[in-house]
Design a protein around this nucleic acid. Sequence first.
RNA 1: GCGCGUGUAGCUCAGUGGCAGAGCGUCCGUUUCACAUACGGAAGGUCGUUGGUUCGAACCCAACCACGCGCACCA
Length: 698
Amino acid sequence: MKKRLLLERKNYNPLEFEEKIYKYWLPYFRAKKSKKNFIILIAPPNITGSLHMGHTFQNFILDTLARYKRMAGFHIVWIPGTDHAGIATQNVVEKELRKEGVTRFELGREKFIARVWQWKDKYGQTILNQFRRLGLSLDWSRSRFTLDKEYTKTVQKAFVDYYRKGLVYRALRPVNFCPRCQTSLSDLEIEYREAKGNLYYIKYPLKGSGFVIVATTRPETMLGDVALAVNPHDETKSELVGKIAILPLVMRELPIVTDQRVDPKFGAGILKVTPAHSLIDYEISLRHDLPMVGVIDEKGKMNHNAVQFKGLDYLEARRQIVDYLDKQNLIEKIEEISHQIPLCERCGTEIQVIPSDEWFIKMDYLANLAYKLVKDRKVDIYPAKFRKPYFDWLRNVRDWCVSRKLWWGQQMPVWYCKHCHTQSFQVSINRPKRKCSLCKGTEWQMTEEVFDTWFSSALWPFAILYKKNEKEWYPADIVASAREILHLWITRMIFSGQFFLKKPPFKRAFIHSTILTKDGKRMSKSLGTGVDPLELISKYGSDSVRFGLLWQMTTHQDIRFDEQPIEQGKKFLNKIWNAYRFYFMKLEEKDINFKNKNLSSADKKILSALRSTRKFCQRKIEELELGLALKRIYKFFWNDLCDIYLESWKGESKNNPMVFKEVMIETLKMLHPWLPHLTQLIYFALGHKKPLFFERWK
RNA sequence: GCGCGUGUAGCUCAGUGGCAGAGCGUCCGUUUCACAUACGGAAGGUCGUUGGUUCGAACCCAACCACGCGCACCA
């Protein structure tokens, strides 16, 4: 790729060169230990899909930063990887099976997992190849997967460690349960949908005489009622406190208690307490020492506590119970309301809250760790407006349910006695040698439960950046994340890192804006509102797309996607290409006297503009205001350099060729983080043989 | 309900107290020897609304309206 190339072509076509240039760079992306490392923690994409706008945007930001830092003298460490994405991947493969008419249960655990590995081999690579197409400066020789052997071991060890330090417990507690996925879910894996429903006002007779009215949207759970509750400050209800109500259908006696979680303005101002099927009710039951009576099982069917309704689907049970109550004249009225229904984030099935045997991590100590690190600025959550939601979440967080009854994930290092089953367990990586404390048996079986995929993600920085007695790149300088996984991922990495390595896993967490559709809606594959970044790249080239996205980037506002700035990017590439052509032509035409030290006024102006632009950009890049920096460079290039300075070279010119030369190379360096492929190509054409990112910004 | 953010040209957005800006789009003109993916020019705005502070407000303050997001509730 010589000078000739530049002179021959009046126009630049990015698609022609980008992939070749990327291949040329690869060996130079190797991570190595250095006194001046700049370490980036990648967000490993799920193996479920292909590159979307969010990945593209996030990694363009990081790559631009990486190239800038490299040109400021740092050695970059940026290691790629993919996430097994437990429930998400399991569901995609299940969907595939459904087309073949097979369920995962018919296939069996082992065969099913083999199927998922097949999926992983096929699609896990796809998304990484797409990262290459973006031009990211990643060290491919160290790529990791969250389910590789070493990683799994790290995850299991971490759990054992938590257990030994007393942060893990196993409990029968109501949890969010997806009847289709057949697993528990954390609060963060649920989404809500607005739906119309009925609010049933039901008469509960009082012991002695009279009755109270209780409103509920879910009459079928009333068979699990163990109390009624009113707000302690609700004077209109105070004479009820201490009385006993009778649960219709089963005639159970229900004490009437007070609890502040009751909203006196909702419904009839009386809450039926059903600890087995509501998290709030469960909390109330702990405060009042109430039992838990479950009536719905994990398939969403009524269980033996539901007397004559046993075996019915919960919706059918609701219908029959309302029917029964109505015949007994116990329905006061039915109101139509609009309320939020909890759905499984991954499959859309309505969530049931049911009691289930699960493993929990105590959050108070860990939440406190995470809180302090950000409060003391040991971790910079940036922009600062995300600090408040971070603190709020940690203040209110519940214990973390980390067990999942899925098949795809890291198996928990928990062993149950073959005879006593879940009554007796050991927590250890290897098969326990101890005797069972109940039956003295010595046969242990590893549990089929796996970890919440976010439990493993929380250990990502630890697993990929830290190795004892070897190269250590922990902690990272920066991680970038979408807003929606602030708690799911960022927060949990912070306390996990601090807990295990006594150091937070990164110095700065950058929460970048979201790319929305042109009408400000969420981009979603299923709604068909997504824009495929790869299509854009094959239309305009990677540099143009990078330009277009970064051009629109701000740190404080979401982006409404617009193809136009990408188009503008492509034109800009052409403008740059031609500016360098012009430079060549002039140098060839003129017999340059390099000893000339005189500067024209145009020389002085362009040097000054170059300096101030560079200074401005350095400041803005550190603030991650890449959009502002890019706009400034664009303006400098088009107006100061092309419109004024290059024009001043036309005709008779008193400009100094040395200045010309310097300005053109310095400008090329300044452009490189934004337009890496093009600038590298021109750099070659200028006669250089090394990667442009080895140059330094002055 | 609580919190965060946004509202500036047809569109996407810059603009932190001193003459309202950019890119695209639109209209008119130009193939002049780097680039028609270019160049020259033009039209286009009650800066969400109301009030306040100020010599002066797009910018600071208050209230309101609209939109987006997060959290909680969702019995």
